[in-house]
Nucleic acid binder design. Structure first.
Lengths: 234, 234
DNA sequence: GATCCACGATTGGTCGGACCAGGGAAGGCC
DNA sequence: GGCCTTCCCTGGTCCGACCAATCGTGGATC
């Protein structure tokens, strides 16, 4: 029990040490850390290995480095920590993608419902703008951009950074572009537009239940499409 | 447009390059990558920087290194990619913690409902065992272990790796221990036990709606406790 | 001929030091 | 007093050497 885990790498131990400093409160959000060189000396490893540990904590969203200025602890907000997870949907394939969409079908309706209960008039106006932009544009890329902005605005109105960050990670531009292209080719764009309108209407009515249902229908639609087209994916 | 993003670090570019190799399908799940030295040479950077890029992709759950053997792409299952999630609840504080719990209140009931519809008799038996273990143990650490196992078993029965991984990340041993200790001191353990029993009963009845409600009540309970005790936290 | 083992080539892990590039504060110039 | 230069500190990159786990290979053994 003395030091059984010497089997792990020095870098991993450094990561754990810094994490422990943060969880224990010795390092607080926003605070600046010692120099790379100092940290390496203190924790007893080379600067190279220390840099790897710092890089790891950086992608985790725990630390943040500023060239020439120093290393800082991030504000540690859920958004910061979930930032690196935008990779998720990007690499998932086949059954894994379906699973991610299933998760989205659970979270997005809940977020939309929360938004319906507390969205401001200003935010609602922005949602309306994105909705109109979707209808006005021709290029798939533009439509997708408006689509993403539409959902992002709604989720943001829910007031849950964690849900925003999670859903952001579950949405990838390339995936959505593919879905839109397919929908266009299948001539079902009007139906998609109808779904979006229904979501907006529920928000405008400040009707959480209706918003929940409308969002669920919308995501389920995409999920079903993916399930039906899984074979020709990738 | 020639090479505008030379402003970023070489390591970041290497990360992007490897990610692109994966998303484009040139590197497939489980496949082995070239040597660190070869990769560095190919991408035109030093081995040190290349190692940092690899470390970053490792903590993201995209790559996996085996000392002496080589570097491999992970199976890229949602579970692999959400693994680093555990950090989240570990460092979150104050309002951020409440937000995470709010996310859990959305996801866990959904997973429990899905489990109710498809849980096997065997899995149900295990759930029962963990429930009994919770009641039988005295040490908070043991109770927490059984508590975690109880929820984990249920969520696993939902059959969604993404939800399992997410909820796993939202649950930390230290947080739960604190909650249990407080509940014990406040003498509300019987009520918690009752909530667990109700969840089990809904699963046994194969009643998704009841399971959803029971899980929601349970998580909301913890959320309310946290909200009430936020001031004395950390 | 099959099995086992020792050895060495391969590959990731660690180290130390040198040099480059961005930032920021001290101090001089106007 | 305000602006600008300068210099030092800090992260970013690179190199080359050595350590340690792995795995294939080929020879010894039965």
């Amino acid at each position: 029990m003395t030091d059984e885990r010497a089997r792990t790498t020095v870098t991993q131990r450094a990561i754990d040490r810094v994490m422990e400093m943060i969880t224990s409160g010795r390092l607080r959000a926003g605070e600046r850390l010692p120099t790379e060189r100092e940290l390496a000396a203190t924790l007893g490893l080379s600067r190279s290995s220390m840099r790897e540990a710092i890089r790891a904590l950086t992608v985790m969203g725990v630390l943040e480095t500023r060239h020439g200025a120093g290393i800082y602890v991030t504000p540690l907000r859920p958004g910061d920590l979930l930032e690196g997870f935008g990779v998720l949907a990007e690499v998932a394939r086949g059954e894994g993608l379906v699973d991610l969409l299933r998760l989205r079908r659970v979270v997005e309706p809940a977020a939309t419902a929360m938004a319906a209960a507390r969205i401001s008039a200003d935010a609602l106006g922005l949602v309306r703008e994105h909705l109109d932009a979707m209808a006005a544009r021709e290029q798939v890329e533009d439509i997708v951009a408006a689509d993403l902005a539409f959902h992002r605005e709604i989720v943001a109105a829910a007031g849950s950074p964690a849900m925003s960050a999670l859903l952001e990670g579950l949405s990838t531009r390339t995936f959505r572009a593919r879905v839109w292209r397919a929908h266009r080719d299948e001539g079902v764009l009007p139906r998609t537009r109808e779904e979006h309108e229904r979501i907006y209407a529920a928000l405008a009515d400040r009707d959480p239940a209706a918003a929940h249902a409308a969002a669920a229908v919308h995501v389920a639609e995409v999920e079903n499409w993916l399930r039906a087209n899984l074979d020709e994916w990738d």
